[in-house]
């Protein structure tokens, strides 16, 4: 005998469906709550960022006012710094012409007289004219010029001309390269 009970099958099917629906409802509730929380967090984060931007803008405005209030100090400082840089540039172009002149005047004391000197900054070299009373003093002058001490100080010295005057003096022309402060 076949037991046909459609109601029982239907009830169990309905119970099963009910459970599935409850499960879907539960999951969807969790998803909705989760998504809502994320949305709240998103808006909170956005709001926090806006607050931070406003706060930063306010601080920037305060600093700007402070900086503008000290504009004169800033300009004076910029002039000061630029002047130092210009002075540094001028110093670098300077050569040791006075030092060279004093050095040679001292080196040739009692041996030769400096009778002429020419210097032009754009050409860089110093031309010295020395006069020795006699050939012996000229020789001493020459020895000094070739000495190791002098060559250490001034490496590029060129003896460009030598002449004897009617009075028996010897005139020697030297060209030396000066060092700049660069």
């Amino acid at each position: 005998m076949i037991n046909i009970n459609f109601f029982s099958n239907r009830v169990s099917q309905k119970v099963k469906q009910k459970k599935q629906d409850a499960k879907i409802f539960r999951i969807s509730s969790y998803v909705l709550i989760g998504i809502t929380l994320i949305m709240v967090a998103t808006f909170t984060f956005k709001f926090y960022n806006n607050l931070q931007i406003n706060d930063t803008n306010k601080k920037i405005k305060e600093y700007k006012e402070s900086i503008l209030g000290q504009e004169n100090v800033e300009i004076n400082y910029l002039i000061f710094v630029n002047k130092i840089k210009v002075i540094s540039e001028i110093y670098k172009k300077r050569s040791n012409k006075q030092e060279a002149m004093n050095f040679f005047a001292e080196a040739f004391t009692d041996k030769a007289d400096i009778i002429g000197m020419n210097y032009q900054e754009d050409q860089g070299g110093l031309i010295l004219q020395l006069s020795s009373d006699n050939v012996f003093k000229l020789q001493e002058t020459n020895e000094i010029l070739d000495s190791k001490e002098l060559r250490q100080q001034y490496q590029n010295i060129e003896k460009s001309a030598l002449a004897r005057t009617d009075l028996g003096n010897y005139k020697l022309t030297l060209t030396l390269e000066l060092k700049t402060n660069e």
Binding site: I90, K93, R94, K97, D113, I114, I115, G116, M117, N118, Y119, Q120, E121, D122, S131, T165, L167, N169
Partner: peptide, 12 residues
Amino acid sequence: TVTNISINRNID
């Protein structure tokens, strides 16, 4: 800065 110097001395 002294840019040009020309010194002459006649000791003859």
